[in-house]
Write a protein that binds this DNA or RNA. Structure first.
Lengths: 106, 106
DNA sequence: ATAAAATTTGGCAAACTTGCCAAACAGCCA
DNA sequence: TGGCTGTTTGGCAAGTTTGCCAAATTTTAT
């Protein structure tokens, strides 16, 4: 594969990779309902706040979320709401997988 | 997060994770144009055939592609063509990132 | 049977990811 | 100022992913 084509797929993969973690997917789903501060997300997920902060910085680095500081809180919001569209496709794959599995098991 | 909710996001993440590699993304893109044998994909990507085979088994394990053996070749095809929809969103994020970057650099 | 072509599997080292803790940093208020 | 709350960063150990090679497997052809 030529270097420029490869670079293109690497750039694309970086964005998808940012979504490829259960916690980050949960965060994206939650942000689709409106902005949330780090403290809210931390309470919901239940991991250490430093862990949540790092997940958020990965999403931000990919350009998927935006952050805004207000007072001593940081609010995150979806910068690319279209990522929400991934869910319906993913759900359809999961349903198809479940059906196939049921068929094989009998 | 409750165990069942967590399991749900893990299942979703597994599918997105399967797409989160440049080579696998290329393969999905290529398969959107029709089925391809492992040998075709290997030539296009230029990695070792065992590497391509492993990427394909990850995509298959996620339920994204299907395989069919014909003669001594194995043909892969998209089992979940909706994953192709990811690309337009990813491209829009990349464009937005590029614009933002240009703005910051001046 | 034997060989050749296509694909998968096992194994391994290098690189990357994850999630916790502790420490640093920033903003607010007494 | 000092302390408090909210967030980010550095560091690290454990786990995961990647991509190559060599070996095994499967199918076709001689």
């Amino acid at each position: 594969m030529e270097a420029d084509v490869k670079a293109r797929y690497e750039a694309r993969a970086k964005i998808i990779k940012a979504m490829s973690h259960p916690t980050r997917l949960f965060i994206v789903d939650e942000l689709s309902r409106g902005e949330r501060c780090v403290c809210d997300l931390t309470k919901m997920v239940g991991d250490d706040v430093s862990t949540i902060s790092k997940h958020l910085s990965i999403l931000k680095g990919a350009g998927i979320v935006a952050d805004e500081k207000r007072g001593n809180q940081v609010f995150y919001s979806l910068r690319a709401p279209c990522v929400t569209n991934f869910f319906s496709c993913v759900e359809s794959v999961l349903r198809k997988n479940a059906t196939e599995h049921a068929r094989l098991v009998g």
